[in-house]
Design a protein around this nucleic acid. Structure first.
Lengths: 332, 332
DNA sequence: CGGTACTTTGCATACGTATACTTGTCCAAG
DNA sequence: CTTGGACAAGTATACGTATGCAAAGTACCG
């Protein structure tokens, strides 16, 4: 195995000192064009690639940002990670996806060992202490998608309340009265806000929410399917099911298919997020659109802004949502 | 902002030297229990977290493995990345997903800057020189899923030939004669092998493959949909469409839905891979099962094995596949 | 021609951890 | 009482890059 080429090797070949190599290759001013050219030729000849670890140690910066998500096999997260990656790349940051909640919650050590210049949290639970821990260590971070009960860190999320209201209005307008729901975990802000929002919206129209027809489950297809199989087997089965997000809605659609129910004739299903899969003609889910690209952009801007005064209150942005009508809704 | 705590700070508080801290915290033998205890208390008190960069530079190892994939919004890749991550974690390696082919192909620099102890390639094209470049630098690597034309590196993939044969047999048995196909790119081994395999299988049964009914597209939903809209609008439209993988098949199902065709009554659709989504009752795709967990395990074993003699020929493993019958196939 | 200012480069060192080597201590064997 | 060995901890240094500062060279001006 060929031993690693360092900036010293390049320096030797070019007949200069190591610091000159460092400066020449990074286009630092104060190097004569001829020297720079000579160094670059030597570097190319040796196929020199600067050591990331050396640079990191010296500069105390990695140009790497950690994005904390749950398992990527949940189709929601790639849709959020991808725009984050793109926007971070635009600022010359590399993205590292760190998986949370798979063998226990992510620890502070994994995020605070100097591997990352900042952290974007997308799976934080309402009372998590992780943001505070990061703040105490002076590690830049931002919450995207999910928010904390007490605004302790910069954060951005969607107008879940507004989206849920739009869903409630739609269902009432269609004439639904037995409205079921498969909502997300109460420990997450998204789960909580969407559930509360729907409740309030229905009540405002004089429709009494049926709490026996509400389930709280994880944001996965299988959990949505199981809950729906349960709800749809009841004698007083709902004529519509509102879901915590699209992935859960896919599970509900799976359950309906299994039970031989036709959507939307026998059952209305509403999602939340409008991930690309929801728009596949094969699925055509009626849902609430959330602009993930805009959220990602906001999160990155919040993370990287440098004009933050020390005693400023944490920012909390809300991205508006809008109902998207496709083919899984109809009258009861 | 609190300045960073180093092993020197811990040493000072514990009244020992820095190397003693290093040894004590890693349970290296040759440290008295009392000293170790004292060091650990000091470390906890200061909330010390060792610097990744320092360790990396000193040990010349990162315990990080790069997994090169295409965009994660393509549902196939998370399904491959997740088992890889799990198996690597079992060996105390962290996984970093590096995205290829998004703003141009991934460069060697990003993989060979010392950030990773090894590389797992999942998107390599048949004539890519990346594996050779990695080999020249002595960077351990392995190909998973896709293979090279000339076996230059350890690699593992699925028995695409066998899977395609099973599909051909099934279609002939059902009585299909106008068999269309939406296959993957010819530049990829998976695309090529699956297409060739189907051709051979049909020919063996005396069914002449209709090359006008074959399209080569990228492995995405939208590409599959577009190709199928084209094929299904022809007067001699196929009675079955074989797809390069499941994601493409989803696109074909979308197209069928748009055109008002009923599956499987009007059209048979066959996928390849059997990712979990294919098994959702909502979709119920007939496809070829590929054991991604087994492939991942193989890839990790090949990558990490240390008993490799220098002049050994590259290993090339094939994981068997099997047809899974669900609800998108039927007689013409 | 002397001095000043500027440009270009080298020297020394910092970053944080790990490890080979050395020193010191204590105990047991001779 | 000496010596050899085992153990514990300290000393010195390496890993690869970046940067403050000094030094050398050059150009320019009076």
């Amino acid at each position: 195995m060929p031993k690693k080429v360092t900036s010293f090797d390049v320096a030797q070949l070019a007949g200069v000192s190591q610091p000159t190599v460092s400066r020449a290759l990074r286009n630092v001013p104060g190097i004569s064009p001829e020297t720079r050219e000579r160094v670059m030729r030597a570097a190319r000849e040796l196929a020199y690639i600067p050591s990331e670890a050396g640079r990191t140690l010296s500069m105390r910066t990695t140009r790497r940002i950690a994005v904390v998500t749950e398992e990527l096999t949940n189709p929601y997260y790639p849709e959020l990670v991808e725009p984050l990656r793109r926007h971070l790349a635009r600022h010359d940051f590399r993205t590292v996806v760190v998986t949370d909640n798979v063998e226990g919650p992510i620890g502070l050590e994994a995020l605070a060992d100097g591997s990352y210049d900042g952290v974007i949290l997308t799976t934080t639970r309402r009372r998590s202490t992780l943001p505070r821990d990061l703040a105490e260590r002076g590690i830049p971070h931002v919450l995207a998608n999910r928010l904390l009960d007490r605004a302790e860190s910069d954060s951005c999320g969607f107008d879940n309340q507004g989206g849920a209201t739009a869903i409630g209005d739609l269902l009432v307008e269609l004439g639904h009265e037995r409205v079921g729901a498969v909502q997300g975990p109460a420990a997450t802000s998204t789960g909580q806000e969407r559930a509360d929002g729907l409740d309030r919206a229905l009540r405002r129209h004089g429709v009494h929410p049926w709490h026996e027809l509400t389930r709280r489950v994880d944001f996965t297809h299988d959990a949505g399917r199981a809950a729906a199989l349960d709800l749809l087997s009841r004698p007083d089965r709902p004529t519509a099911i509102v879901c915590g997000n699209d992935v859960v809605a896919f599970g509900v659609l799976s359950a309906a298919r299994e039970l031989g129910l036709t959507v939307p004739a026998d059952l209305t299903v509403i999602g939340f997020d409008d991930i690309p899969m929801a728009a596949w003609p094969l699925i055509g889910l009626t849902t609430v659109h959330c602009d993930l690209d805009l959220l990602a952009r906001m999160a990155v801007d919040l993370l990287l802004r440098h004009d933050r005064s020390p005693d400023e209150r944490p920012a909390e942005h809300r991205v508006p949502t809008r109902l998207v009508l496709r083919s899984t809704h109809g009258p009861p």
